[in-house]
């Protein structure tokens, strides 16, 4: 298991290095000079040159790449071209919204999907299964911003249980913060839960047809015991893959939900930075997201290894 983990770790570092290079090149190659954009179309060439020097845009590209990467390793992401504040504080502030939101949504989606998937699988073809499958069909089909708007309408405007938008911050305690993230988290979680429940169900049904499940019954286990003791862990492998993908998506993919609920999250930050050519912020946020995706995949790989002994010995 140790060698397996080290191998995964090595591949994680290599992926990060490659990703940083690709992100830097793609964003630098894209047209649009931040300095001329900031100064407007009537700016004098020497003013632009001065601003470029101030922003550090006049040094060779290799040097800028190295500065950027070495800065990131030490936590210094540079200064935003537009706002003149450290990028790390800008991202840090937004992370305190986006990361808890993503985790909250993922937790909700898993909590909904697991029981729903197991229930549907254990009642295959019966009314319970059909009902769960119908609900998940709806969950997959309906876009999450529509859920979000419906939820605002019902729980914020009619019932007044939650605020219609905005983020209360973490200063007044965990519960207050979570409370203000609940509606967005649910709207993000429902479609993901629908997908996850379907994967869970079909994975379990595949496993229930396996020979070793029949062996488990022949040993004297009841259907339910066989499912819990032998089925569930075997069914986890495809489910883990989907959970990993969903988490990566939730960190960055919540921009529409952030808009609907006026949340100051990462998605909004990227959106603003791109429109104002704040390249250093874009680069850093994208790098951070790539980092998150790669780390999540690393964790999923470790989880595979923990679940399946065959993977451990293969490497």
């Amino acid at each position: 298991m140790l060698r397996y983990s080290l191998k995964r770790l090595l591949s994680l570092i290599v992926s990060l290095a490659v990703a940083s290079l690709v992100i830097f090149l793609v964003i630098e190659v894209a047209p649009g000079d931040p300095a001329s954009f900031m100064l407007g179309i009537n700016a004098q060439p020497d003013t632009i040159a001065a601003l470029r020097a101030e922003l550090g845009l006049d040094v060779p590209k290799t040097e800028r790449y190295l500065n950027w990467v070495s800065g990131m390793v030490t936590g210094d992401f540079g200064i935003s071209y537009t706002y003149r504040t450290p990028v790390s504080t800008m991202i840090g502030d937004r992370m305190w919204v986006s990361l808890p939101l993503a985790l909250y949504a993922l937790a909700l989606s898993t909590l909904i999907a697991f029981p729903a998937g197991v229930y549907a699988a254990s009642r295959r073809g019966k009314a319970g299964d059909i009902a769960v499958m119908g609900a998940t069909q709806l969950g997959v089909a309906v876009p999450n911003f529509w859920f979000a708007m419906m939820m605002v309408l019902i729980f914020a405007i009619n019932l007044r249980w939650f605020g219609a938008g905005g983020f209360a911050g973490w200063d007044d305690g965990l519960l207050v913060g979570l409370h203000s993230l609940t509606l967005p988290a649910i709207s993000l979680a429902l479609p993901q839960a629908a997908i996850l429940a379907r994967v869970m169900r079909s994975s379990l049904l595949d496993i229930m047809g396996e020979d070793f499940m029949r062996t488990a019954r022949a040993k004297g286990l009841s259907r339910r015991q066989a499912l819990w003791r032998h089925g569930l862990r075997n069914a986890m492998i495809p489910v883990l893959t989907i959970i990993g993908l969903q988490f990566s998506f939730l960190i960055a993919g919540s921009i529409i939900i952030e808009k609907v609920f006026f949340l100051p999250g990462l998605g909004q930050l990227v959106f603003q930075s791109i429109s104002s050519r704040d390249l250093i912020v874009v680069e850093s946020v994208v790098m951070l997201l790539v980092f998150a995706v790669i780390v999540v995949n690393f964790c999923v790989d470790l989880a595979y290894g923990a679940v399946d002994p065959r993977l451990r010995s293969r490497t």
């Binding site: 396996e210 020979d211 062996t215 022949a218």
Partner: peptide, 26 residues
């Protein structure tokens, strides 16, 4: 079913055809 669970594996054991898949791989 509960009575059968007590019999299976206890009073009556069963061996299957396909040893490659009859065991839980995990």
């Amino acid at each position: 079913e509960a009575e059968m669970c007590a019999i299976r594996g206890n009073a009556a054991g069963m061996v299957f055809q396909e040893p490659m898949t009859a065991l839980n791989p995990l």
